[in-house]
Simulated scan of single mutants.
Amino acid sequence: MIFNALNIILPTFRQYEGLDKPIRLLIKVLRGNLVFSEQIAVPLKDEIQLVKEYLQLRLLGDPSRIRIGWDLPSVIPDTWLIPSMSIQIPVENAVKYAFDPEDENASIQIRIMEKRQSLYIDIEDNGIGLSVSGNPRQEEQGTGYGLEILRQTVDILNSRNKNKMSFIINDRSHLEPDGHGTLVSIIVPFDYTFEL
């Protein structure tokens, strides 16, 4: 119903220069989030498209505030499935919480590769990391619940699979001496089943 209402009023916004594109992006992102939230797994390329649209919408006012890097395979088969929102949620958390507003070097890198009969996904930011001065970052804000739901989903799915999926969140300061930021790593075996 909300999408129908937005589509009805969309022609009204065309008279205001610059509003048509943001409203269209908003409709796409809302629709994608609604559809994906009802699915256990989605094709990787659909998730990538949703994340790109979200980032376009989120950074609309200041597209250079955070540099976004994508390192993707040249071909992404329709058969490559991942847990729904497993890229969206970490990217959204990074955009919302990882950077000070004055940070001029803010970046998020999304790397996806195929190796050893598995799909490897890394979402890495160079922000404040999971802890600053010993105090854990407030993961329970916003999509912090999304991360917990994602963890629970992976645990349930892993209980039904011989080859397990990995879902690991690391503070980069624990991985490298001068590192800062967060690294979310997901490994999905190609023979993984998403049936509950």
Rank of each mutant, 00 (worst) to 15 (best):
M1E: 08
I2S: 05
F3H: 08
N4I: 12
N4Q: 12
N7R: 11
T12E: 03
F13E: 04
Q15I: 14
E17P: 08
E17Y: 07
G18L: 00
I23N: 08
I23D: 13
I27V: 08
I27A: 10
V29R: 02
R31G: 12
G32P: 02
G32Q: 07
L34K: 04
V35C: 12
F36K: 07
F36Q: 05
F36E: 05
I40C: 13
I40L: 14
P43T: 06
K45Y: 03
E47V: 01
E47R: 09
L50H: 06
L50G: 07
V51I: 12
V51Y: 04
K52N: 12
E53N: 14
E53G: 04
Y54Q: 09
L57Q: 06
L59N: 05
L59S: 07
L60T: 05
G61S: 15
D62T: 08
I68R: 01
G69T: 12
D71S: 15
P73M: 05
S74Q: 14
T79A: 15
I82M: 11
S86R: 03
Q88H: 10
I89T: 13
A94D: 01
V95C: 10
K96C: 09
F99C: 00
D103Y: 01
M113R: 15
S118D: 07
D122C: 08
D122K: 05
E124P: 01
D125R: 05
D125A: 03
N126W: 00
G127A: 04
I128V: 13
G129M: 00
S131C: 09
G134I: 01
Q141I: 14
G144D: 04
Y145R: 12
G146P: 08
G146S: 11
L147M: 11
L147D: 08
E148Y: 10
I149Y: 06
T153C: 05
T153R: 13
V154I: 15
I156C: 08
R160N: 14
N161W: 01
N161S: 05
K162P: 02
N163W: 02
N163V: 13
M165E: 02
I169P: 03
N170F: 06
D171I: 02
R172F: 12
R172C: 14
L175P: 03
D178M: 15
G179Y: 04
H180M: 08
T182W: 00
L183H: 01
L183C: 13
S185L: 06
I186K: 03
V188L: 11
P189G: 11
F190A: 06
Y192V: 11
T193Y: 06
T193R: 13
E195K: 04
E195R: 07
L196R: 02
